[in-house]
């Protein structure tokens, strides 16, 4: 028998702490596969913000730095300056990157730092119990938008990739999704492209991944995927906003 697909070496044998059907597992798996395929396990460093992904160092086998909420972008810039040999990626939620960490997430793109920014967008603050995030859809109910998000009071959902793509310093910016196999394959390609850019010194790359959040959305994982396909994508169009 020939192996068609086997688990990436980026994970140890612990059961991950993510909820059943959580997108973190799929995104982190893809990053692990990129690590294996690009042979960078000795150079790869994940810089984690604060959120559901914070404790993911327990399941990983490669280098990880955990920094304050919102600050991975700055830490990645500093690390890359001190050790350009590292392949550094920031791993943040939509709140970590687009709310408290807005400045530290955008500025690496302003500077054109040769790093990779991965953002997992589930349209809520999940770790803290489901509050409204910058990406919460208009009318979406959360624990802090009980009557549905009022965009007149809180603004429209934030499109960070489109904004970062407008900066001369960014080289590759894409938004992808996990809602079915075809899109998962495309997401993997985009993430791999982002890492190849860094390895080849092309410059700043950002990939935002639309991700399910069964526990907070109060939906079965399969229904979350339908919600992404029906609703979330309408607000957050997929595509490559910059770079091949």
């Amino acid at each position: 028998m020939k192996a068609v697909y086997e688990k990436t070496t980026a994970f140890n044998d612990l059961v991950t702490g993510y909820c059943p059907g959580c997108g973190h597992g799929i995104v982190q798996r893809m990053i692990g596969e990129c690590m294996d395929e690009l042979g960078i396990s000795d150079r790869l460093v994940a810089i984690l913000g604060v959120g559901c992904s914070s404790p993911s160092w327990r399941f990983m086998t490669y280098d990880i730095l955990s920094v304050p909420h919102g600050r991975p972008g700055a830490a990645a810039s500093g690390m890359k300056k001190c050790d350009p040999n590292k392949i550094v990626y920031t791993y943040q939620g939509d709140g970590d990157s687009g709310s408290i960490g807005f400045s530290e997430t955008v500025y690496p793109a302003v500077r054109g730092d040769n790093i990779t920014s991965i953002i997992v967008n589930n349209t809520v603050y999940a770790m803290t119990g489901g509050q409204m995030a910058p990406t919460t859809l208009a009318g979406q109910v959360t624990t802090t938008s009980p009557k549905g998000r009022d965009v007149n009071a809180t603004g429209q959902p934030l499109h960070l990739p489109e904004l970062v793509a407008s900066l001369p310093g960014s080289r590759y910016v894409a938004r992808v999704s996990l809602h079915d196999t075809a899109h998962i394959r495309k997401a993997k390609q985009a993430i791999k492209q982002a890492f190849e850019n860094q390895i080849n010194g092309v410059g700043y790359s950002m990939v935002e991944v639309l991700s399910p959040c069964p526990s907070i959305w109060r939906m079965k994982p399969v229904d979350c995927m339908e919600r992404i396909a029906r609703e979330v994508i309408r607000e957050f169009p997929l595509g490559t906003f910059k770079g091949a």
């Binding site: 192996a3 068609v4 697909y5 688990k7 059961v15 973190h24 798996r29 196999t181």
Partner: peptide, 15 residues
Amino acid sequence: ALNCPDMAISVYKEA
């Protein structure tokens, strides 16, 4: 396997 968030499935084929 591609959809599994927990990497619980490995896939094989006759050689």
